[in-house]
């Protein structure tokens, strides 16, 4: 096989996979391709995609962030409590996002300044942030968030037919696409993941790049938490549990290398769509939720195996 061909297959692989899954599902279930259902899938995907976008940056630097689900929960809970206390909704939202950023910064600082492996560091903060969420909420859902249209719009709004969370996802996608492709910061992310020592010796502030990547992931995760809170009209203390796994799965399905330095945000979008489409399609086909897990895991494994073969 010629190099060019392999290359195309590798980059287009996830997309081809997605298209195949869509074709199969639309044959098996006629209601799958309805506009309503597609928009529904996209809305369900948006939360995972937002987290996975951040996760892509983290993984590109050679790291990992297991604490995203906990950040989602605490970010959502903080905003919810402030809303319930009657605070200005815009301010409450900003504070929730800021909290996400701070949690991300903590991750980044522990990893770079404390020189703790990202897996261990974020495993610990995952537990800490979850614990803080339980303390903060007393282990009970926060309800009675008031009736600010602004806050309701975040998770439940539409622009004509398109749910707003989908718009948020697309905006984040376009921005990060640009950041990775065109900016000095984006180039730094790839460089640090490709060879940290050589990057530092080229005068790149590797530590700073990494801290920012975790901050961005924290903010995106908290934002996903706001969408969820807005949709449910309440903040659940156990929200976002094991969301890190779906996010990592989306990144890997998209062809980004877990070793760092290689990958792209478009792949992650496709990866998140694959997971979303599978969830939705298997539901439509009345596959038992237990068996759905088996199928999802199998798809991930298959994708990684195909990727291996091409390298």
């Amino acid at each position: 096989m010629s190099r060019k061909w392999t290359h195309t297959l590798q980059t287009a692989g996830p997309l081809i996979g997605l298209i195949l899954i869509v074709i199969i599902l639309s044959i098996l279930s006629p209601s799958f391709l309805s506009l309503n259902n597609i928009l529904n899938v996209l809305r369900q995907v948006s939360i995972n995609a937002l987290i996975a976008f951040g996760m892509t940056l983290v993984i590109l630097t050679g790291g990992i962030d297991l604490s995203v689900g906990s950040i989602l929960a605490l970010g959502g809970a903080i905003t919810a409590k402030m809303l319930a206390g009657g605070m200005d909704p815009i301010l409450a939202v900003l504070i929730g996002l800021l909290a996400g950023g701070i949690m991300g910064a903590i991750n980044g600082i522990v990893i770079t300044k404390g020189k703790v492996a990202p897996f261990i560091a974020t495993l610990a903060t995952m537990t800490i942030f979850r614990g803080l969420t339980l303390v903060y909420t007393d282990g009970r859902p926060i309800t009675g968030l008031g009736d600010s249209t602004f806050f309701k719009m975040i998770g439940k709004g539409y622009i004509s037919y398109v749910p707003l969370p989908v718009i948020w996802m697309l905006i984040a996608f376009v921005i990060l696409l640009f950041v990775l492709k065109k900016t000095v910061f984006g180039r730094g992310i790839y460089a640090v993941g490709g060879n940290e020592e050589a990057s530092i010796l080229s005068g790149i502030k590797a530590g700073r790049v990494k801290i920012w990547v975790y901050i961005i992931t924290g903010v995106l995760s908290a934002f996903a938490g706001l969408i969820l809170t807005s949709r449910l009209n309440s903040a659940q203390p156990n929200a976002g549990m094991s969301y890190e796994l779906d996010a990592i799965a989306a990144v890997v399905l998209g062809g980004t290398s877990l070793v760092g330095g290689r990958g792209w945000i478009f792949g992650t979008l496709v990866g998140a769509l694959i997971i979303g489409v599978l969830n939705n399609g298997l539901n439509l086909l009345n596959v038992s939720p237990f068996f759905q897990q088996v199928v999802k895991g199998g798809v991930i494994l298959l994708a990684v195996l195909i990727d291996r073969r091409n390298k």
Binding site: G194, N195, A198, R262
Partner: peptide, 9 residues
């Protein structure tokens, strides 16, 4: 290899 270049770039 280890200090000068990012081989995959």
């Amino acid at each position: 290899k280890s200090e000068g270049l990012i081989l995959g770039m």
